[in-house]
Every structure is written in structure tokens, then in C-alpha cells.
Amino acid sequence: MSGNEKLDTVHQNAIHIETIRKEQRHQRLHTEFSINPRRKLHILPDKPMSRKPPEVIEENSDFIEAFHKARQEPTMKYTMPMTESQEIGWVSAPLVSSNRSDRRLNFCRTSTDITRHKESALRSGS
């Protein structure tokens, strides 16, 4: 059948039935729900004029553990970077230990007679 011809009611119904069967084949019923640990929680306070006692919420240790794990930095959560952008800066430890007395790697600000003269000229505004 070419794209220019109109489908009659029988063919449209057959296509609709096939679509429904495909959707039902891949459908799953989810019965377990939990709070997303990567989402910030907003706890709303009670109304100021309400007289009922506040609800006591039980502590769920699995949720708290998942929440803390989601808040960790990526190097603590994973052994290797998960994306290519995480590869940049993944190893944050310095390659060479810092030694302030080593003149090869430590470039402290030094001043000479010429630089002191120029600094004083800049400070005075002339």
C-alpha cells in the first residue's frame, strides 16, 4: 500500500490493535516506590495555628545511606571515571610533593631596585 492511499476503517483498526499489543508486551507494573536520593528534600512545617501534635517520622537507615552516598564526590563513589568529562581532574593528588625551598618549582615574587622604584612611582601616581 503506498503512502498516498487512505486507509479504510478495517486497516486502521488492525494497526491500532497491533500497536496496543506491542505496548502491552513491553509494559511492566511497578509496585515498589522510593524517594530519589539525588533530589533535595523540602520538608514543610505544620501550620502555625494547628493544634494537632507533630508527626513522628521513623528513620529509614537504607534511605539515609543512599542519600549520603549520592552526596559524595565522584572519586569517593566510583573507582574509575564514569564519563569523559570526569577524566579531567580525576586524579587530583599532586604529582610532585610541594617543597617551598626548591627554587625550580617555587617562583616566589621577588623585587629588585628597578621594580621597587616602579612600584613607588605607581603608588605616588606620577
Rank of each mutant, 00 (worst) to 15 (best):
E18S: 14
E18Q: 13
T19A: 11
T19N: 11
I20G: 09
I20A: 15
I20Y: 12
I20V: 15
R21P: 05
R21C: 14
R21M: 13
R21D: 14
K22Q: 15
E23F: 11
R25Y: 14
R25H: 14
R25P: 04
H26F: 13
H26C: 12
H26M: 12
H26Q: 14
Q27N: 10
Q27T: 11
R28I: 12
L29P: 04
L29E: 12
E32I: 07
E32Y: 05
E32W: 03
F33W: 15
F33I: 08
I35A: 01
I35Y: 02
I35H: 01
N36P: 04
P37H: 08
P37Q: 09
P37Y: 04
P37V: 07
R38W: 05
R38E: 13
R38P: 00
R38G: 05
R39M: 09
L41K: 00
H42I: 06
H42Q: 06
I43F: 00
L44N: 06
L44W: 05
P45T: 04
P45H: 04
D46G: 02
D46P: 00
D46W: 01
P48R: 06
P48E: 11
M49L: 13
M49R: 08
S50H: 00
S50D: 07
S50K: 02
R51G: 13
R51C: 07
K52L: 00
P53E: 06
P54D: 02
P54N: 00
P54L: 01
P54I: 00
E55L: 03
E55S: 03
I57S: 00
E59K: 06
E59W: 08
E59L: 10
E59M: 07
N60G: 04
N60Y: 03
N60L: 05
S61L: 13
S61D: 11
D62Y: 01
D62R: 02
D62V: 03
F63R: 02
I64D: 04
I64Q: 10
A66R: 15
A66D: 15
H68R: 14
H68W: 10
A70T: 06
